[in-house]
Amino acid sequence: MNFQRILIPALGLVALFFAWRNYGIGGIALVAGALVMWGMLHVTRMMQVMKRAAERPIGFVGSAVMLNAKLKPGHNLLHVVAMTRALGQLRTPKDEQPEVYRWTDAGGSYVDCTFQDGKLVQWQMTRPEVPAEPADAPPAAP
């Protein structure tokens, strides 16, 4: 169960209660203003990330190798979208857990990220296979 969905509103209510008890209506105004500001900052960040992602093709990343190096378990989907500056290409049926998204770079390498309830649980990078040169190929020109 996701305790953040319960814990954050509960902490907000506790802060409002103590503000009312210690400072009256002025304390409620101060705490309510702080909670609204926190919410606005969160929405502004989310909108900025989505605005940047809307300007790039779905599933494209500049370097799959760099994305693979930056990923850590527990990152949420919004954080990964902010790192890649692009929405991932959904590889599983919509609204089915776990969700798998793919980001591909120009060289054909790609990273498949698996998210369980919006949190990154695993990822795998795959590089395209380089064809082997034939044995009787002429040497490269200098």
Rank of each mutant, 00 (worst) to 15 (best):
M1Y: 09
F3W: 14
L7S: 12
A10P: 05
G12M: 03
G12D: 04
L13W: 11
V14R: 04
A15F: 15
A19G: 07
A19L: 05
W20T: 05
Y23M: 11
I28R: 12
A29G: 04
V31S: 03
L35P: 05
M37F: 05
W38T: 13
W38I: 15
M40T: 00
T44I: 13
M46I: 10
M47K: 02
Q48S: 10
M50G: 14
A54L: 05
G59R: 09
S63K: 04
L67N: 01
A69C: 02
A69Q: 03
P73N: 03
G74R: 00
N76V: 03
N76K: 00
L78G: 08
L78P: 02
H79T: 00
H79P: 05
V80I: 02
V80M: 01
M83D: 08
T84Y: 12
T84L: 06
G88R: 09
L90T: 04
R91M: 00
T92A: 06
P93H: 07
E96P: 08
Q97Y: 09
E99I: 11
W103D: 06
T104Q: 08
D105N: 14
S109I: 03
S109Y: 00
G118C: 11
G118I: 15
G118K: 10
G118D: 12
G118S: 15
V121K: 14
W123H: 07
Q124W: 11
R127V: 14
P128A: 15
V130W: 12
P134H: 01
P138A: 07
P139E: 09
P139N: 00
P139Q: 00
A140P: 00
